[in-house]
């Protein structure tokens, strides 16, 4: 086992003192005002999740599980960054279940189908914020389903 302390070229170049608070605050504003046509990404995710309804539990779909995980993870990662905190909140719940699920069973499929429907509703109605009409119902329903799953399978 060899240990080494390589020269810290980054430190040598930037020196000391940190980044001024004003710049960090300005960067927060850059994020808050970030605009992207994120609804097209949501629609694509819904399209990609369409295959979920065709899944047969008799098939070995472990590899596909990773594909669905990536879709959900991407929605969780980018929703809030582009003005859709509701998408991030929903996706976070589903990702927690996908990350621990050991078997792709009917309960898991139900959660994914409900998730897909929720995303579709959000995209169709441009429900952006958590306080949008019906948003809380969607989040609560999905949260409850995820909670039941985690409880049932003792995670």
């Amino acid at each position: 086992m060899k240990y080494s302390n390589p020269p810290n070229s980054l430190k040598e170049k930037v020196g000391s003192g940190g980044i001024p608070v004003e710049r960090i605050e300005r960067a927060e504003t850059v994020i808050a005002e970030s605009k992207a046509e994120f609804s097209t990404y949501i629609q694509q995710a819904v399209k990609d999740l369409e295959q979920v309804s065709q899944i047969s539990l008799e098939d070995d779909i472990w590899a596909e599980r990773e594909d669905y995980t990536k879709i959900v993870m991407s929605m969780k990662a980018h929703g809030k960054m582009f003005g859709y905190p509701l998408v991030t909140a929903l996706s976070y719940e589903v990702l927690q279940v996908l990350d621990v699920c050991e078997k792709f069973n009917a309960d898991m499929l139900d959660i994914l189908l409900a998730y897909k429907q929720s995303l579709k509703l959000i995209a169709d109605n441009k429900m952006v914020q958590m306080n949008a009409d019906g948003a809380k119902d969607i989040v609560n329903a999905l949260c409850a389903a995820c909670g039941r799953y985690l409880q049932k399978y003792s995670f």
Binding site: I24, E28, V30, K76, A77, H78, K80
Partner: peptide, 9 residues
């Protein structure tokens, strides 16, 4: 992700 500017800093 999602992260804040403070997180990245």
């Amino acid at each position: 992700k999602p992260f804040t500017a403070k997180d990245m800093y």
